[in-house]
Amino acid sequence: MPADPATPASERASPPSLDRAARALRGSWPALDERRLAGWLLGFSEGFTRRANSVWMLDAVEDLQSSVGAVEEAYRVRGLPSRFLTTDSSDVDEVAALRAFGYVTSLSGGILARSLGPTDGRGQPLPAAHPSAFVSVSGPQLPSDWLDAWLAWNGRRLPSDRRLAPRILSQGTPSFLSVSVDGSLAATARLSVVDGLGVVDCLVTDRASRGRGYARLLLERAQHEALALGASSCLAMVVDGNDASLRLFERLGYRRLGAFRYLEGPDRTSCC
Rank of each mutant, 00 (worst) to 15 (best):
D267L: 05
A215M: 08
R167S: 11
A97D: 03
D4P: 00
L227G: 09
A22P: 01
S192I: 07
A189D: 07
C272R: 14
E264W: 02
V179H: 14
G123S: 10
Q65I: 06
R207F: 10
V193W: 00
S270V: 11
V95C: 11
E225Y: 02
F176L: 09
R35H: 15
R162A: 15
P30Q: 13
R268N: 11
A21Y: 04
R99L: 04
M237F: 01
A13I: 07
C271V: 12
S82L: 07
Q171H: 03
A259Q: 14
E225T: 07
R78E: 14
Q141R: 10
S132T: 15
D243T: 05
A236F: 01
G121D: 06
W56A: 09
D267E: 07
V135D: 04
V55S: 08
L112E: 00
E94I: 11
V95R: 09
E34F: 06
L169C: 08
E250N: 01
G39F: 12
V104S: 08
G213S: 15
F44M: 11
A222I: 02
L126N: 04
M1C: 06
T105F: 00
V92L: 13
L218G: 09
L164G: 09
L246N: 03
P125Y: 04
S89A: 14
L98N: 02
S209R: 12
A133D: 05
S106F: 02
E220M: 08
H224L: 06
L42M: 09
R251C: 01
P5E: 09
S10K: 03
R212G: 03
R12N: 08
L80I: 01
G39Q: 10
G39K: 13
R210C: 10
Y254M: 02
E72S: 11
L235P: 06
P81V: 04
L147H: 07
D148F: 05
A3M: 01
S54M: 07
A165Y: 13
V61P: 10
A189C: 06
A70E: 13
F176Q: 12
F84C: 03
L142F: 02
I111V: 15
E220K: 00
W146T: 11
L235K: 05
R122Y: 06
R99M: 02
D33N: 12
G139C: 06
V181K: 01
A13G: 12
D33P: 05
V68G: 03
A6H: 09
H130C: 01
